[in-house]
Amino acid sequence: MIEVFDENIPIYIQIMDLIKKKMISKELLPGEKLPSVRDMSKQLEVNPNTVQRAYLEMEREMLVYTKRGQGTFIVEEPQVVLKLRQEMVLDRVANFVREMEAFGFSHDELLNFIERYLSK
């Protein structure tokens, strides 16, 4: 796996985003075991403590849980993935709207453009 990380922003956040994307795309399923901190750090070529921090943060966000001696797993509940999907779309929408607003587009214009694109 060759991941290119942007060193200008915290790497543990990028690792979290990577895992979240895999959950949304179903590459990682509910209940599935994540690679060990060591394996993940080797795969991503980052410090193991950085991976550990990402796993801990995701546990705090209740997206994964750790079973002592066994590893870290994606939570079983499927609603969690649904919520992630929603968050991802809303995030993209927010960025799109903000960016277009900066160019001076009105909301009506933006809705129009979206409809045009979708009806093609």
Partner: peptide
Amino acid sequence: ITDVEKLLD
């Protein structure tokens, strides 16, 4: 630094 910074705590 570029090569190594991801390695550093």
